[in-house]
Write a protein that binds this DNA or RNA. Structure first.
Length: 727
DNA sequence: AACACCGCGTTTTTT
DNA sequence: ACGCGGTGTT
């Protein structure tokens, strides 16, 4: 084999996968084993060694970030931007196909994309129009039903009604929802995938064309594919194709949103001539961390099976900290990060990972009071902010008057005298006539029905949109946006309400103009007019907050959002049964195994040092709970874990800590902890009565071990336990 | 149209 | 505890 730069930097296993013959290939790539590297090098190898045309390559990822990274790395490898290459997310590529073949897909040329929130709004409207009680027909559940049906490739007509009236109603709602979308010319995310699938399935000549073209299909994170995505892949690959898919079944953490890890095994059955490659050498973590992760994940059943190893050092053992409560946990983390920084480390090297977002707060509070800069991932992204979506709704109306959701959103924003009654009349007219809200509002009949005043207000709104459409035609994109913001009165509207973060909202609107200015139509939308391209971009790429990405700050995020990232120092917090594994996943084996994979993902994020922490007591939803350490801790080989105890300083007569509330004036000199002596009887609010077995520590960290009559033996922090001595 | 109050749910997230 | 959505009040 030649030693071109494409192959030179690869290890044997990686190289074998990269130069695999053109048969179906499944690469099982463990965490940190260089899977993106293999994918990008495979692409480069196809082009350089196999003389594949960039035109013939289709590479699919799940996130925009992954797609951008892959594109960047391929370009660097090849030295030139291979423009003809299709690299994108499943949704992005489906979108591109649907734009190119809108007619064959029976979509209007200027169809718009509904995000999850838009979708739920639409469903709410529908439920209201159907006079269904939202407490019985929960919008979220209807949405879930519709999306998971689509994920399975099922249309309403494909669904069996059965005996269940609830199901029958759901199917009916799905049908009504779909009709509404068609009328409005909008598609939701799941629809993008399903339509793209149907487009190929139902147009054999089109499919033949694309099969001919995309001879090389590559898929990242294959274990996360859902049914329709896999069906789509099988279509484009065809029975004779040779898809190249990279997967890690141990990192499948999205079952709850339709991902089918079984697709990994299914792939081997569907493409029997395929080759399996395993990447097991890890370049990220120390030996201890890998051994811990391997030990944990070995408790799962039905794995394809692989074991990570490293040629590097064993490193330090994992550190386990048993905190008294969530505040103590946060304080411990804060201290350790401070030490890290004191020893010359950077804050950005540290990640605090947790199972659920609610856990971030305590850490934020601790970091703020320690003046430790941090950044929380997740939350609303730019294009999801209410004011930005308001502005986008105006723009969407400019492009597509039939977009009812956008119409409803801004018809009376800012308020222009179109109240609930006028809107009801418009809705009714639209429903009875089977037309869009816009058309209904414009009909002369309706004008008569409304009072003169309301009719004028509605007319004013329609005229505004028409006028804007006329005036902005031909302007540069950012000027179109700017003009719309001014003419609609949106900026003025938000400027006025200073009370409610109005200032930040105005800034976001200004930012939207900048975003429009900087919008270089991405290739997927090159066929579109700029405004349409921009709107699609806004829907498909919600806008990662890049703000202050440069400041050196501690990174905080959920375990899910940590996937794919790595950090020298990782804190895995809230390791308690019920929290992690989460209560709602604990009972069924699939749920529990997915939680375990999530833990595996978390552990394998760490490069040098991994901390596990849990709290014996945690305030959750306003009530105190007392948890057990996570079962996952026990699944890690114990010799890899070093338990950290608070600076222990056993004092015989306990003169520190306090019982009940601290009296004013006692601050500074510690109140003797009357009654908390070895052998003393105490009462606890939750656990009842017990006997003090031992006392540890001093000051705010003092803790006592108590044997409760009914709840067994617990360690509690005197500061928080509110123990009551029993005479 | 702006505000107050009530009741409810509350894992994870991308597109 | 807390935030959201819905309803009712001024």
């Amino acid at each position: 084999m030649d030693s071109s730069p494409i192959l030179g930097s690869l290890n044997d296993a990686q190289r074998a996968a990269v130069i695999a013959p053109l048969t179906p290939v499944l690469v099982l790539a463990g965490a940190g084993s260089g899977k993106t590297r293999v994918l990008t090098h495979r692409i480069a190898w196809l082009i350089e060694a196999e003389s594949a045309s960039p035109h013939s390559i289709l590479a699919v990822t799940f996130t925009n970030k992954a797609a951008a990274e892959m594109r960047g790395r391929v370009e660097r490898l090849l030295g030139t931007p291979p423009g003809a290459l299709w690299i994108g997310t499943f949704h992005g590529i489906a979108h591109r196909l649907l734009r190119l073949h809108a007619r064959e897909a029976a979509l209007p040329q200027s169809f718009q994309i509904l995000d999850a929130e838009d979708q739920q709004r639409l469903i709410r409207k529908l439920l209201k129009a159907q006079d269904l009680d939202e407490s019985r027909w929960i919008p979220r559940e209807v949405q879930w039903f519709i999306n998971s049906s689509k994920d399975e490739g099922l249309r309403p007509k494909d669904l069996k009604r059965g005996e269940d009236p609830v199901r029958a109603q759901m199917i009916r709602l799905y049908g009504l929802y779909q009709e509404q979308c068609e009328r409005s010319g909008v598609v939701d995310f799941a629809e993008l995938l399903l339509r793209a699938y149907e487009l190929w399935r139902d147009n054999p000549s089109l499919l033949a064309h694309y099969r001919q073209r995309f001879r090389h299909v590559l898929v990242d994170e294959f274990q996360d594919t859902n049914s329709i995505q896999y069906a789509w892949l099988k279509l484009i690959a065809g029975p004779e194709g040779h898809p190249f898919v990279v997967a890690d079944d141990d990192q499948s953490i999205y079952r709850w949103r339709g991902a089918r890890v079984e697709n990994v095994q299914q792939f081997r059955r569907d493409f029997p001539g395929g080759q399996l490659y395993k990447l097991e050498q890890n370049y990220r973590s120390t030996g201890s961390i890998l051994a811990a992760a391997n030990g944990l994940i070995s408790h799962n059943t039905g794995r394809v099976g692989k074991t990570l190893w490293t040629s590097g050092d064993r490193g330090r053992p994992l550190q386990l900290y048993a905190a008294f409560n969530e505040r103590d946990e946060a304080e411990f983390v804060t201290h350790r990060i401070r030490d890290h920084v004191l020893h010359g480390g950077q804050r950005r090297e540290v990640a605090v990972l947790y199972r659920s977002n609610a856990q971030s707060r305590v850490f934020e509070e601790a970091f703020i009071s320690a003046r430790l800069p941090y950044r929380v991932y997740g939350g609303l992204r730019f294009f999801e902010r209410a004011e930005v979506k308001d502005a986008l709704a105006y723009l969407r109306l400019l492009v597509n008057r039939r977009d009812d959701a956008s119409f409803e959103r801004v018809v009376n924003l800012p308020t222009r005298g179109i109240g609930a009654r006028s809107l009801d009349a418009i809705r009714e007219a639209a429903r009875s006539g089977g037309i869009s809200l816009w058309e209904a509002a414009a009909s002369p009949d309706l004008r008569e029905e409304l009072g003169a005043r309301a009719a004028a207000a509605v007319g004013g709104f329609l005229a505004l949109i028409e006028r804007l459409a006329g005036e902005t035609a031909g302007l540069a994109l950012h000027e179109q946006v700017d003009r719309m913001l001014q003419a609609s009165g949106l900026v003025e509207h938000y400027r006025r309400d200073r009370a409610d973060r109005g200032e930040a909202r105005v800034e976001n609107l200004e930012e939207l103009v900048s975003a429009a200015r900087g919008f270089a139509a991405d290739p997927a939308a090159a066929e579109l007019p700029p405004l349409e391209g921009f709107l699609a971009h806004a829907a498909l790429e919600s806008g990662e907050g890049q703000a202050d990405a440069w400041e050196d700050s501690v990174q905080m995020m959920t375990l899910h959002s940590a996937k794919g990232l790595e950090f020298p120092v990782v804190f895995l917090c809230g390791m308690e049964d019920g929290l992690f594994p989460h209560q709602r996943s604990i009972t069924d084996i699939h749920g529990l195994e997915e939680e375990r994979r999530l833990c595996y993902v978390g552990m394998t994020r760490a490069m040098r040092q991994l901390y596990l922490t849990y709290a014996e007591q945690r305030r959750l939803h306003g009530i105190d709970t007392y948890g057990q350490p996570s079962r996952f801790i026990k699944e890690v080989p114990p010799e890899l874990i070093e338990e950290i105890r608070p600076r222990v300083q056993v004092t015989r007569p306990v003169t520190t800590g306090r019982l009940r509330r601290e009296e004013p004036g006692l601050r500074g000199h510690e109140e003797p902890a009357a009654g908390v002596r070895l052998g003393a009887r105490v009462r606890h609010g939750k656990f009842g009565e017990g006997v003090v077995l031992s006392v540890e520590g001093a000051g705010p960290h003092a803790r006592v071990q108590i044997s409760f009559e009914r709840q067994g033996t617990k360690w509690l922090m005197v500061q928080y336990a509110n123990l009551e001595p029993i005479a």
